[in-house]
Amino acid sequence: MSQKFENLSALIDGEQLSSDDVIEAVKGDADLMQKWKSYHLIRDGLRKELPTELNFDIAANVAQALENEPAILAPKKTWRELPLVSSVIPFAKQGGQMAVAASVAVAMILGVQQMNQTDVEQPFNAAPPILGIKGGLSPVSFEQTRTAPKTDAIEQKRRIQAYLIDHKEQMRFKTFQAPVVDSDVLPIEETPINEGAESDIVESTPE
């Protein structure tokens, strides 16, 4: 019993040379399959690589749901199958189906409307904002995730370009000599580099 776990553990650690036997054993043994899963989980945990959401055993959950599903049996013969009644019922049924279809459509429309509503109070758009890295080669290219009114857009863009250029410049001119020591009063400098040199560098900004 413990030997088979031992072999599996060694395999997962990459210490087992002949892996075929162990994998064959795992295929035919539910205990080992469980171990296989938990060993990998432990490893991911140790490496801090666990995903943000843990969804184990989707297949098992589905299987369980099917298990609990009530069996569908063939219906008994009833009075509905009398000739007259059976020809009336389809009408009623169709009407019912129409009603169901209509209500589904209404529900969908409501749902779509709700989904398209933007939450004004929300600080960010629902889509993750950082991922739109399509900046291209220009250092001042910038993608906006929220549209500003048209008249202000140009002004806004100008300001953002100015910030981006200045950020690039700051990154270029930063210097480090030793780990920074905490100090209470911080010096405030006025435009550190003389204007001439500054504009030269701004013009180029390659990359």
């Binding site: 950082i130 900046g135 910038f142 993608e143 906006q144 995730t145 202000d152 002004e155 806004q156 910030y163």
Partner: peptide, 19 residues
């Protein structure tokens, strides 16, 4: 001075820009 303020999130390559 201008009214071009408000919240804005964007990305420039791997840099995040936030106003």
């Amino acid at each position: 001075k201008s009214k071009t303020t408000g919240r804005l999130v964007g990305a420039n390559q791997t840099d995040t820009l936030f106003t």
